[in-house]
Design a protein around this nucleic acid. Sequence first.
DNA 1: TCGTATACCTAAGAAAATTTGGTATTATAC
DNA 2: GTATAATACCAAATTTTCTTAGGTATACGA
Lengths: 100, 100
Amino acid sequence: MEPIILSLLKDNGKMYGYQITQHVKELTKGELQITEGALYPLLHRLEEEGILDTEMESVDNRMRKYYSLTKSGKKETQKAVNELSLFLESLQLILQPKTV
Amino acid sequence: MEPIILSLLKDNGKMYGYQITQHVKELTKGELQITEGALYPLLHRLEEEGILDTEMESVDNRMRKYYSLTKSGKKETQKAVNELSLFLESLQLILQPKTV
DNA sequence: TCGTATACCTAAGAAAATTTGGTATTATAC
DNA sequence: GTATAATACCAAATTTTCTTAGGTATACGA
């Protein structure tokens, strides 16, 4: 989940929690569901680690907590996405039919 | 891990635990390490679920426990690999730069 | 006014992995 | 010859990560 969230924030600048869940649902046509129970604790951890910054915004009397990447968060994102890519390549090596 | 193991058994017919760990390490050039603490409990579970069959073989006085897919195991493999593919496609939708 | 959508959150439990330990044999290096 | 690495199996404790299930509150449509 972490590389997913970081990657989304990298592409979209800043997002709030609920928006992330909806965005992923739409992008993947319902295939992937980010549950709030997994998302919020993760966002809080990343904020505490200095990877994310927050700013509150009130829209129609509802609070939105926007998250964005800090400078070190951008480095971390690079790292996380690279690692994931390596992992996916390894996965392909295993799943790919031998004949390729 | 489950789809990885099932996929390997599908491609290679029958394998024993230690062989699986070595095979994955070689295939991925050390990138992916299957730890035995994760592997053996998984194999035992899959055997108990009727997905895998076992046969013992003694080579140089060392026991090897070979695992192979049962009939229902082949169906399960199909299912697991398909699900993983769907997941990976969703992942690509998120990680892919927007401009694609 | 009642359900759904928006928006945040936490806590308990489950699932899956890592870490660390154990047994035993064989091959290799010193 | 003896210690270390490699082969081969396994289990238990811990950690990590997710799901499930709950809670609060506002806004909107039927």
